[in-house]
Design a protein around this nucleic acid. Structure first.
Length: 926
RNA sequence: GGACGAUUAGCUCAGUUGGUUAGAGUAUCACCUUGACAUGGUGGGGGUCACUGGUUCGAGUCCAGUAUCGUCCACCA
């Protein structure tokens, strides 16, 4: 074993070994299944710190449960990420000077598949470097055949229940990507903008006018009215009058509507139903027929007269200038405005009027709300229930169609008779609300359904999706040859397939054994920014199609920030690359560093220093093992040769500490707790302090010494504790622990080994008083070290130490264990007793139950010791004063619990005792 | 405008249901190349627990308010 633990070789070796052994696959056990589904990373993604954190958490949990003997499945896979992936491939095409239209849909999709096959697995390889123990043999992809079938099945079922419908209304449109977006895909970003006030002249008297304000003047060409509040005195007389839109001079009415807020702007507001969500509502109330002023490329339409064809922002600039020249611009105000932007492209989103597919949310949202309300799924931390509810409660319908080529093509076939005249209204006029269509798994099924409608139209007369077509069939001869019957061009929102992830990956809609065993899953671990996108949708989908919530616990971890507390992002260039960190410090260190930082959903300010600390910890453990390893002997520390009764107190003490550690770590990792950071820090301090700094030092001479019962005992206890430590540590640091285990000669790898049991047969019961003796002696060591430190006595200087205990009994009990002190401090002599004569000139210190003297004869000046004792006396006295005051307070003695009061009394007594002892020591010096 | 989170040592953070003289790591200073580890050892210094009130025998912890920072949501035209 090298003196430095070098991670790289060991990590790749063990990962390969685990894969060879098929260690990640679920193994049937007594304890039943435990299942986690991975939040599928995008195939375009590269591993960032957020992934590293998220997946380490999952791996810790799954390894813990696997070691406990559960039938664990960590279901992996990737997401096709419609927009992101399509964009990447489009960009690549662009570099070749081509567009996707040059290829056509079919070729383009082929091209994306080719890209996916080449690069889509990169993130999986990175997850493997991190040590993730997913069952890769079951890896799924949201667009593989099985999952696509699940998507179609869900679509068809929801459609049959009228929970999916086609709606013609305003949607969020991204001009850059040329697709609709769901509400959550629009981010409102603050930006400096302007608030322009424009005069619309009266038709009757153009010298006068009404002033409206807007942040988007170019939408003016789509105005249909100017609204004022019905109670607004200023405008009452104007209602019904007509005003002219500047430049184009189209007359529009002044209408009364409560939407107009008298306190905002001038109190008069322009109404542009085709380009503003509120105005759309106003337009419906007043039966205004929307005028589309911006086309889907965000260029002005013919409605804009001389501005037709101009891009929106260019038009805005020109328009403002022209209005100013004409004297129709009343004022300009700078203000910060919220601009809706596309979460993928960053382009400014425009509300646009068109048909799209929607999921009706009221009943589904209610399912999801009830589930969390009842506690069937709980959030950790629970405050995220609020976030979850906030999004679900409005029950706004979910726009699921995207005008992309990469994704699940919507399984709907549109029926158009050759005689139908299609009136285009904006884009997608092909199917309007009353158009007929059939949802089906595939072309064949669609044809069969269509044939049935033609044959039995009466059956479908009440079906809203087929009504008009059925009526036509009833009226006259309709034959298949008269029809255009083509599949919808659009694809589904990527999140539509992600929503099915917990059951589609397990084989649904087939009744597979995996689905039977592993659904519902147990814990979902994810980041808070996809509670809306993903978590809520998985919950209602699971409830709807499986009848059960997909997981009982949702653990939301914090966001990784840089050292300044800013989000890491590519554009800022402030990211810390996990792979680079793994190269520098090792995967175990990266994992452990992240785990010590992640507490209850708090955001994490990350610096590489954390990984360095964890690396040092790994090295510490490595060296402890390296030191003891040669002495383990042929049986490598097996218990067989040791009579548990022969163990000394230090042995029993570390075993006792170890038992306590096992209990705490086990408890912390249970899904009910999920205290990852506390567990990691506990392991750190146990290993470093109790195990290395104390136990190992105490037993060092026995371990390296001659063969015999002492050596056997020490080596055995060390090995036993070590075996527990590496097992407990394995979920956090899988590689180094596995490597250490192999040096202990254990055949079975840790990954599938058993989790430590705090109840160990054969070890005598731990006696609290005895354990207390060790703690006291360790305190004594600290006291001596303090004296050494205070007087700068070099470590190699052997000291004469005398300890006077309060009673002879105490001294007698401790005497047999004085090796604990002797091994930890360099002493020439160590005398335990009661009323022993103190050394003539000595430094002293108070320890629990006694007083320690360190002879300074010939070493130091008495004056210095006087000063030190003086300081300590002052401290002790002021504590006594405070404590007496507390206990003289009748209310405290009356109201506080008896044991608290008793505790305080005891403290007072021990401090009084301490004061007395210090005073004595001072007197001795004089 | 609403909701939520944070504020404790120079830095990063713990601090369970109120109950020691508030802890850890790191940084810093001093000493130590002692036969696992200098990615190490020992010791020291360093905090009015953001602020103001309140409840209580007792508050870092509970309540009310204030400030600063951050996140999410929301149509301010």
């Amino acid at each position: 074993m090298d003196s430095r633990y070098s991670a790289a070789d060991i990590e790749s070796k063990w990962y390969a070994r685990w894969e060879e052994d098929d260690a990640f696959a679920p193994k049937q056990g007594k304890k039943g299944p435990f299942t986690i589904v991975i939040p599928p990373p995008n195939i375009t993604g590269a591993l960032h710190m957020g992934h590293a954190l998220n997946n380490t958490l999952q791996d810790v949990l799954i390894r813990f449960k696997r070691m406990q003997g559960y039938e664990t499945l960590w279901q992996p896979g990737t997401d096709h990420a419609g927009i992101a992936t399509q964009s990447v491939v489009e960009l690549a095409l662009q570099k070749e000077g081509k567009s996707k239209h040059d290829l056509g849909r079919e070729k383009f999709v082929e091209r994306v598949w080719a890209w996916k096959n080449e690069y889509g697995g990169r993130i999986v390889e990175q997850l493997k470097r991190l040590g993730c123990s997913c069952d890769w043999s079951r890896s799924r992809f949201t667009m593989d055949e099985g999952l696509s079938r699940a998507v179609r099945e869900v679509f068809v079922q929801l459609h049959e229940q009228n929970l999916i419908y086609y709606g013609f209304r305003l949607v969020n449109w991204c001009p850059k990507l040329q697709t609709a977006l769901a509400d959550e895909e629009v981010e409102n970003k603050e930006s400096k903008g302007h608030f322009w006030s424009i005069r619309y002249p009266f038709e009757e008297d153009p010298s006068q006018g009404i002033v409206v304000s807007t942040t988007r003047p170019e939408t003016m060409f789509g105005d249909l009215a100017v609204a004022v509040h019905p109670d607004d005195e200023r405008y009452r007389g104007l209602i019904g009058k007509k005003v002219l839109i500047p430049i184009i001079n189209r007359a529009i009415p002044v209408i009364a509507d409560e939407y107009a807020d008298p306190t905002k702007g001038t109190g008069a507001v322009k109404i542009t139903p085709a380009h503003d969500f509120n105005d759309y509502e106003v337009g419906l109330r007043h039966k205004l027929k929307p005028i589309i002023a911006l086309d889907l490329q965000a260029k002005l339409t013919v409605e804009a007269g001389p501005y037709a064809g101009l891009e929106r922002f260019a038009a805005r600039k020109k328009l403002v200038t022209e209005l100013e020249e004409r004297g129709q611009l009343v004022s300009v105000e700078d203000r910060v405005i919220l601009i809706p932007t596309c979460y993928r492209s960053g382009d400014v989103v425009e509300p646009a009027l068109m048909g799209q597919w929607y999921v009706k949310m009221d009943s589904l949202a209610q399912l999801a709300l009830d589930c969390v309300e009842k506690g069937d799924t709980r959030f950790v931390p629970d405050r995220y229930v609020k976030t979850y509810r906030q999004w679900l409660e409005p029950k706004k319908d979910w726009c699921i169609s995207r005008q992309l080529w990469w994704g699940h093509r919507i399984p709907v076939w549109l029926i158009k008779h050759k005689e139908d005249v299609v009136i285009l209204e904006g884009r997608r006029g092909l199917i309007l609300d009353n158009a007929s269509h059939i949802a089906a798994q595939n072309q064949e099924e669609a044809e069969n359904k269509l044939a049935d409608v033609i044959a039995n139209p009466r059956k479908y007369i009440d079906n809203p999706n087929l009504k008009s077509f059925a009526e036509r069939c009833l009226k006259g001869n309709v034959s298949r040859a008269d029809l255009h019957f083509v599949q919808e061009e659009d694809v589904l929102d990527t999140w539509f397939s992600s929503a099915l992830w917990p059951f589609s990956t397990l084989g649904w809609p087939d009744k597979t054994p995996e689905l039977e065993t592993h659904y519902p899953t147990d814990v979902l671990i994810t980041a808070r920014d996809i509670i809306y996108f993903w978590v809520a949708r998985m919950i209602f989908s699971g409830l709807k199609f499986m009848g059960k919530t997909p997981f009982h616990t949702v653990y939301i971890h914090g966001t990784i920030l840089d050292e300044k507390g800013q989000r890491m992002s590519k554009s800022k260039g402030n990211g810390i690359d996990p792979i680079e960190m793994i190269d520098r410090f090792g995967a175990d260190a990266v994992r452990f560093g992240l785990m010590t930082l992640t507490t209850e959903g708090q955001d994490i300010k990350l610096s590489p220093v954390k990984f360095e600390e964890a690396r040092n910890f790994a090295n510490k453990l490595w060296n402890a093992v390296r030191f003891v390893h040669p002495y383990l002997g042929a049986d490598l520390g097996s218990w067989k040769k040791v009579d548990p009764k022969s163990l000394n107190l230090a042995d029993r003490w570390i075993l006792w500490r170890c038992k306590d550690l096992i209990e705490r770590i086990t408890n912390d990792l249970e899904p009910a707790e999920l205290k990852f950071s506390r567990a990691a820090m506990d392991l750190y301090s146990f290993t470093w302090n109790y195990f290395c700094s104390q136990y190992l030092e105490i037993r060092k001479k026995d371990i390296t010494g001659p063969d015999g019962p002492e050596k056997t005992a020490a080596v055995t206890v060390f090995a036993a504790v070590l075996r527990n430590v590496i097992a407990l540590l394995h979920p956090f640091m899988p590689f180094i622990t596995e490597e250490i285990r192999s040096h202990l000669g254990d055949k079975n790898p840790l990954i599938t080994g058993s989790w430590p049991d705090p109840v160990r047969p054969g070890i005598p019961e731990f006696n609290a008083d005895e354990m207390r003796i060790v703690e006291d002696l360790l305190d004594l060591v600290d006291a001596v070290r303090q004296i050494r430190g205070n007087y700068s006595l070099p470590p190699q200087k052997a000291l004469k130490v005398v300890v006077n205990f309060d009673t002879q009994r105490k001294a007698d009990f401790r005497k047999p264990h004085d090796y604990i002190v002797k091994e930890l401090e360099h002493v020439e002599s160590l005398d335990f007793g009661f009323e022993l004569p103190k050394p003539s000139f000595s430094a002293s210190s108070i320890i629990p139950g006694g007083k320690v003297y360190v002879s300074l004869e010939g070493i130091l000046d008495p004056a210095a010791e006087k000063i030190r004792l003086g300081k300590e006396l002052e401290k002790a006295r002021s504590f006594v004063t405070a404590q007496e005051k507390k206990l003289q307070n009748g209310k405290f003695v009356q109201s506080a619990p008896v044991e608290v009061v008793e505790g305080e009394r005891e403290k007072l007594h021990s401090q009084i005792d301490k004061v007395r002892k210090i005073e004595e020591a001072l007197a001795d010096l004089a």
